[in-house]
């Protein structure tokens, strides 16, 4: 009962936030609504006792990805009116994608689980069951190669991003920390003997 009330409350906020993402005029507000969306979906995951996924969603998407998103959106001066010009032209495509998603959801909820009550929640997990452990147990044994592969792909992306920005440009002023640390007193300080000024 309580779970259902919580589910509908958070689901309502989730849908409201999702509508906010596409309707708000300010891109920063859109990003924040998206953060709210992620947060609410994490709560929905918590409700079906998938606490590891929920926390990782918050940690990765809300804590890292969206911060960078917000960062970029704040720095860019986005012209909303220009973005809205293409709305009518692109609307049919959007409607088509929305329809496909709705049909897929319908398929998952109705056709695949025909006769099963999907709104009643899942069976409670046994006492002492650790979600985190369960994920780790399959991730590092059965799926270790795909997991490693994903890690390598991410690493390549990081290296590529760094190498794009780290190119040598003419006129670039950088600091050589080693040289700064290695500097000695003799390089910087020069003692000058000044003869005292005598009064005449």
């Amino acid at each position: 009962m309580l779970t259902e009330i919580l589910f509908y409350a958070f689901a309502a906020v989730l849908i409201g936030a999702a509508i906010g993402v596409i309707t708000s005029r300010n891109p920063v507000h859109s990003v924040l609504f998206l953060v709210l969306c992620f947060f609410n979906s994490a709560v929905l995951w918590l409700l079906i006792e998938a606490e590891f996924l929920a926390i990782v969603l918050v940690l990765v998407y809300v804590g890292a990805v969206m911060v960078l998103f917000l960062f970029v959106v704040m720095m860019l001066d986005i012209n909303i009116e220009k973005l809205r010009e293409g709305f009518v032209r692109n609307a049919p495509l959007g409607v088509l994608i929305a329809l496909i998603v709705v049909i897929e959801l319908y398929y998952v909820l109705w056709v695949k689980r025909l006769g099963v009550d999907v709104t009643g929640g899942v069976a409670p997990l046994p006492e002492g069951y650790s979600n985190t452990q369960a994920v780790g147990a399959v991730l590092y044994t059965e799926y270790v190669y795909p997991f490693q592969l994903a890690a390598v792909v991410l690493l390549i992306a990081i290296v590529a991003a760094i190498s794009l920005t780290m190119r040598k440009r003419p006129g670039l002023k950088t600091q050589d920390v080693a040289a700064q640390v290695a500097v000695r007193r003799e390089d910087r300080v020069r003692l000058v003997k000044v003869a005292p000024e005598e009064e005449k």
């Binding site: 920063v28 918050v58 804590g63």
Partner: peptide
Amino acid sequence: DINAGLLYVLALTSLGVYGVILAGW
């Protein structure tokens, strides 16, 4: 007493940065 307590703390402390960014913006 949740299983993923450490992750929970890490996830929540990473949220504080939003307040700082928003306050500045």
